[in-house]
Amino acid sequence: MTMQLSAKNLVCRRGGRTVFSGLSFTVGQGEGLLLEGPNGTGKTSLLRILAGFGALETGSLELDGADDELTIGQRAHYLGHQNALKLALSVEENLSFWADFMGQPATANTIEERLDAFNLGHLMSYSAGLLSAGQKRRLALSRLELVSRPIWLLDEPSVGLDAASCKLLAAAMMRHMEAGGLLIASTHLDLGLTFTKKLNMGDVAERAP
């Protein structure tokens, strides 16, 4: 059975203001949905709602073809503006903690492989506090493939990355979709990646009368 995420008529309100309304889309396995639109149209809000943060005003959000009781958030990776890294831990410790915590413990070899995919393998034993902003972002990104989860929710994943690292990111997103994963991402940068679907949030955002 294949998995499909379908959203119908989502309405999001924040602080008395309607951010978007009547938002509907579906994302199936191997598909990627790109969220477009200017600031304030609710891209971050939508991704957060999908991850389980923030209540939905109305609308339905369903995951078809799932065979257990896990929530969408428990099946998803969410990468927001923050990297969820502990600067007092080493690069390896950061990843191995999340692997353990997410219930998929990883060996040092696996961790090194995942780090290599983002060109960080040689920094494994260094403290995360020593990394540059771009390196920290890459470390956060390497968590995506370390713990296998079918849905990726990425909010501006390329922030702080140079051109070479953007290519690594695009490659990882490609691999995820080819392996049958679902991808929903917002990005201002053209990553050279073809998304199956696009959703212009500016069109569905509530316009003041």
């Binding site: 389980g52 943060f53 923050q82 997410m102």
Partner: peptide
């Protein structure tokens, strides 16, 4: 640092 958000998404 966003770790708490990820913790709400874990299997635990």
């Amino acid at each position: 640092d966003g770790s708490l958000e990820l913790m709400t998404m874990g299997p635990m």
